[in-house]
C-alpha cells in the first residue's frame, strides 16, 4: 500500500513539474521556431513574474486581480524585450542573437536587483504563498499537495487553450506559417512583426503562470532564480524536437518524469518495504543507487541533454540524427 501511495504521489509530482517545464518550453519553442533565437532571457521573465506576484501579494491584492496584473506586467516586459533588443538584430548570426539574449537576461536580473534594493527588500525574499495553494487535496486515502494539483490543472488548461489557439484561429495559423517559412508568410500578407510580438506575448504569459507556481514551490525568490528553469525548459524543448510546440509540451512532461525518477531512484534500496525484492537485490540497489546520488540529478539531466543533441537533435518525436532542422 505504501508503495502504491508513493508511486501515485510521485506521478502527480512528475506531472506537476512537467507542466511547469512545458509552460516554459512552449514559450522558448515558439520564439525559436519563428526567429531561430534561443531566448535565454525567457527564464528571467519568469523571475519578473515571481517578483510581481510577491509585490502584489505583499500589497494584499486579491489573488485573482494579482494574477491578471502579473500576466499583464510580464507580457509587457516580454514585448519590450522583443521590441528593444531582438527586433534590431533579426537576421544576425545565431551566436549573436543567443549572446544578446544572455545580455538581456543580465539586464533583467540586475534591474530586479536594483528594484528590490530600491524598495528596501533583501536579495532573497520569502514568497508569500496564497492560502489557496497551501495544504493538501485528499483523493480517498491518498493525499497530494494542493499546489501540485493546482499546477497540473492550470498547466493543462493553459496548454489546451494554446493548442486550440494554434490550430483553430487565424493568428495561430499565421504563427505556425511564420515558423515554417517566414518569407512565404510575409507574402501571404501576414504582418510578421505582429506575429513575432504575439509569440513573445504568449510565451511571456505562460512564463508568468509558470513563475508564480514555481515561486510558490520554491518558497523564496531571488533575481537569479530563472537561470536553471530556462535551461531545463530548453532541455524539454530539445527532447521534444526544438521548435515544435507539441514537442515542447511532450518534452516538458518527459523531463518532469525523468527528474522525479532521478530523484526517487537514488536511495530506493532504503525505502523498499521488506520482502518486495530479494535481500541481495536490495543490497545491490543500496550499493549502486545510494541516496548521495540525489545531488547529481541535474548533472544527469544535462548529460542527457548533450546526448540528446548528439543523437536525436530533432527530438524524440523527430527523425534521428539530422543536425539542425530547417
Amino acid at each position: 500500500m505504501t508503495l502504491v501511495y508513493y508511486a501515485i504521489q510521485q506521478t502527480v509530482n512528475a506531472l506537476s513539474i512537467g507542466s511547469l517545464y512545458a509552460l516554459m518550453a512552449v514559450g522558448l519553442a515558439m520564439v525559436f521556431s519563428i526567429l531561430r533565437l534561443i531566448n535565454f532571457a525567457h527564464g528571467d521573465l519568469m523571475m519578473v513574474a515571481a517578483y510581481l506576484a510577491a509585490f502584489a501579494l505583499f500589497a494584499n491584492l486579491p489573488l485573482g486581480l494579482a494574477v491578471v496584473l502579473i500576466i499583464i506586467g510580464t507580457v509587457i516586459v516580454g514585448l519590450l524585450m522583443e521590441r528593444i533588443a531582438y527586433r534590431p538584430i533579426r537576421g544576425a548570426p545565431d551566436v549573436a542573437t543567443l549572446l544578446t539574449s544572455l545580455a538581456v537576461g543580465q539586464i533583467l536580473q540586475n534591474g530586479m536587483l536594483l528594484t528590490t534594493r530600491f524598495l528596501g527588500q533583501p536579495i532573497q525574499i520569502a514568497f508569500p504563498t496564497p492560502d489557496v495553494l497551501n495544504g493538501v487535496v485528499a483523493f480517498g486515502s491518498i493525499t497530494v499537495p494542493r499546489l501540485n494539483v493546482v499546477s497540473l490543472v492550470i498547466g493543462l488548461i493553459a496548454l489546451v487553450s494554446l493548442s486550440f489557439f494554434v490550430t483553430r484561429t487565424v493568428p495561430g495559423l499565421s504563427m505556425r506559417a511564420a515558423a515554417e517559412d517566414l518569407t512565404a508568410a510575409q507574402l501571404m500578407g501576414i504582418n510578421i512583426n505582429r506575429v513575432i510580438a504575439l509569440a513573445f506575448a504568449i510565451g511571456s504569459g505562460l512564463a508568468a503562470i509558470a513563475g508564480l507556481l514555481f515561486a510558490v514551490q520554491a518558497g523564496q525568490i531571488n533575481p537569479y532564480m530563472g537561470f536553471t528553469p530556462v535551461l531545463k525548459a530548453f532541455i524539454a524543448a530539445v527532447i521534444g524536437g526544438f521548435g515544435s510546440i507539441a514537442g515542447a509540451v511532450v518534452g516538458g512532461f518527459v523531463l518532469g518524469a525523468l527528474e522525479v525518477i532521478l530523484t526517487a531512484l537514488p536511495g530506493i534500496g532504503d525505502i523498499l518495504p521488506p520482502g518486495m525484492v530479494s535481500p541481495s537485490t536490495q543490497a545491490l540497489l543500496q550499493q549502486w543507487l545510494p541516496s548521495s546520488l540525489t545531488g547529481y540529478r541535474d548533472a544527469f539531466v544535462f548529460a542527457a541533454l548533450i546526448l540528446m543533441l548528439l543523437f536525436r537533435p530533432n527530438g524524440i518525436l523527430g527523425q534521428p540524427n539530422r543536425e539542425e532542422m530547417r
Binding site: I38, V95, L231, Y296, A299, L305, L310, P313, E323, E324
Partner: peptide, 21 residues
C-alpha cells in the same frame, strides 16, 4: 560534432554539470 547555437547550449550544459559535481 554539434554546430551553431546547439554547441553553445551543450557547453552551457557542461558548465552546469561541473557546478553540480
Amino acid at each position: 560534432r554539434l554546430s551553431g547555437h546547439f554547441v553553445a547550449v551543450a557547453t552551457l550544459g557542461f558548465l552546469v554539470i561541473v557546478r553540480v559535481i
